[in-house]
């Protein structure tokens, strides 16, 4: 039997406080230590988080939370890793080298929140047009204004 994930996390990351996100245990990791923490999360025998179930962000102006929902298919436990970013510096290292699924997930977060993932080889707008202005899921985004401007500049507006 594998030990509960909470105890393993406390042992491996003694400097972090364990909180919870919905029904999952959660830890908050700073941007600078994200990659070294991911290394431990994927390789440590008590953790082995080999699946990135979901990657998303929440806009809590003026800060943005990036959430990584991890799962271990060997132990069956789950964890939410949270990283807070300041609105003025929306940059975070890419985790594609740990989980291949991040390749698509990071594109979506970049498209919707404007968070740049450094180290991603093909960072582009995924859903929105390349020359779209603004990032739709940000709270400061004014949907009708942006759409109007886009249609006007492309001469697509029907009177």
């Amino acid at each position: 039997m594998s030990q509960p994930v909470e105890e393993a996390i406390k042992k491996i990351f003694p400097e972090l406080t364990l909180t919870s996100w919905a029904q999952f245990p959660a830890i908050e990791i700073s941007r600078d230590s994200l990659l070294s923490a991911c290394e431990k999360l994927t390789t440590h025998p008590d953790l082995r988080f080999d699946m990135l179930v979901c990657l998303t962000a929440v806009d809590r102006t003026p800060r943005l939370e990036v959430l990584y929902h991890l799962r271990s298919t060997t132990h069956g436990h789950e964890l939410i890793v949270k990283t807070e970013l300041d609105e003025s510096q929306l940059e975070i290292p890419s985790v594609v080298s740990f989980w291949k699924a991040a390749e698509l997930f990071e594109l979506e977060v970049y498209d919707m929140f404007g968070i740049t993932f450094t180290g991603h080889s093909d960072l582009r707008r995924l859903f929105m047009p390349d020359d779209w202005d603004g990032y739709p899921l940000r709270k400061s985004y004014k949907a009708s204004e942006v759409a109007d401007n886009y249609l006007k500049s492309h001469q697509l507006l029907i009177n």
Partner: peptide
Amino acid sequence: ELGVYLVSDGSNKPYRIKFR
């Protein structure tokens, strides 16, 4: 697997909802 992540701020509308 469809995952629904919901963040509530206490109002009558979801603050953020994510469909995995």
